[in-house]
Amino acid sequence: MREDKQIVPSTDDSAQYINAVTVARLYYYQDMTTTVIARELNLSRSKVSRLLSFARDNGLVEIHINDPRDHPQQVEAALKERFGLPHAHVVTVPEMGGEREWLERVASHAASYLNRLVQSNMVIGLAWGNTVNEIVSRLTPKATVNVEVVQLNGSGTTHSMSNAFSSEIIMRFATNYGARPQPFPVPAFFDYAETKTALWRERSVRRLVELQQRCDILLYSVGALAAEVPSQIHSGGYLDPQDLQAVTEAGAVGDIATVFFRADGSYSDIALNSRTSGPDLELFRRARHSICVASGRGKIEGLRAALKGGFINELIIDEPTARLLLETSNADEAAQKTPDDRHR
């Protein structure tokens, strides 16, 4: 039976989507060339090509390559088994390209994934930083309705309560989906825990904190002091030397949304966390999509700790970093075994 095909005049966005789906069905399902599609639908070949690109860019088409030599898929399976991850995305990168290029590739993959994941009537929480900024710069516009984009942690410093870097990330992400931006105009770290406690009783702040608790998607990276592409919190002057020394002495190896944690995933008794504006990390354990995007060897120790703490249920990572994460985790586990355990 011949499939009925009709091109709708491109008068609005919905028509563009319908036309793109029509062309994609002919190209991928019926194996027709762009020349034949153009002739059948009375379009130019360039118009057909643009519609195919539109279909791919807007998540109407997903391409999966089943390669028996596909190393990333093997690494993804190993990550899921080793850490109990429901979802893992391992991004192929050039080994010699450098960590900056790795981050760019990973950010592009994350942006594409988000464009498929984000739907109407969602609440999305962002922990601003260099990695999330790279992702936002690669998003493709997608129309949604009733979407809220809420900032997870404050960005004010001792010098200024406003931060163009963090606010721009929130605004650009919200604009990309036609969503409502919900910035969090508080300091990244308070001078006194009592000040935070008092401010959290204010209705305006309480409303934002309650919105954070309803997030369908959390997007963040793991902060690391030693990364080749340094974390914004560590390099942007948010912590004075005394604070850095205190969290180091407390055994902290990383942070998520300015909340610090140790190698074993513990965090509740780290003193600085009582002064942070970030949410309790329990939020990341129960979110439907708790998406950590990480790239670079400097993230390894923090990633291992975050996975041990159960804060991540979706990981997007470059292949070299993923392999090193597995190697160091397996080596650490082997080192902790007793002689009797090794011979069982």
Rank of each mutant, 00 (worst) to 15 (best):
R2C: 04
K5H: 11
K5W: 13
S10A: 15
S14R: 13
Q16T: 11
Q16Y: 05
N19G: 03
Y27C: 06
Q30G: 04
Q30M: 07
M32A: 10
T33N: 07
T35M: 13
R39H: 06
R45E: 09
V48T: 05
S49D: 14
R50A: 12
R50T: 07
F54Q: 08
D57C: 02
L60C: 05
I63G: 02
H64E: 14
D67G: 05
D67F: 03
H71P: 03
E76H: 02
E81G: 08
R82T: 12
R82C: 08
F83Q: 10
P86V: 01
P86Y: 03
A88N: 14
A88K: 07
V93I: 05
W102P: 11
L103Q: 15
R105V: 11
H109E: 10
A111H: 01
L114P: 10
Q119S: 08
Q119L: 09
A127S: 11
W128V: 11
N130K: 13
V136E: 03
S137Q: 10
T144Q: 05
N146R: 11
V149R: 04
Q151P: 04
S155G: 10
T157M: 00
T158A: 13
T158L: 14
T158R: 10
H159I: 03
H159Q: 12
M161K: 05
S162W: 11
F165H: 11
S166M: 01
M171I: 05
R172Q: 15
F173A: 07
G178W: 03
A179H: 01
P185H: 00
P185G: 00
D191P: 04
D191A: 07
A193Y: 02
L199H: 14
W200C: 14
R201W: 06
E202N: 09
L208M: 15
L211C: 05
L211P: 12
Q213K: 13
D216C: 05
I217Y: 01
L218G: 07
S221A: 13
V222S: 04
E228Y: 12
S231W: 01
Y238W: 11
Y238G: 09
L239H: 02
L244F: 01
Q245N: 14
G251S: 09
V253W: 04
A257T: 00
T258P: 00
F260L: 06
F261Q: 00
G265A: 05
Y267G: 07
S268E: 11
D269H: 06
R275T: 07
T276Q: 02
P279M: 01
E282I: 01
H289R: 08
S290D: 10
V293R: 12
A294N: 08
L303Q: 15
K308P: 12
G309K: 00
G310Q: 03
I312H: 04
I312T: 07
L315P: 06
I317C: 06
R323G: 15
T328L: 10
S329K: 00
S329H: 06
E333C: 05
R342I: 07
H343I: 15
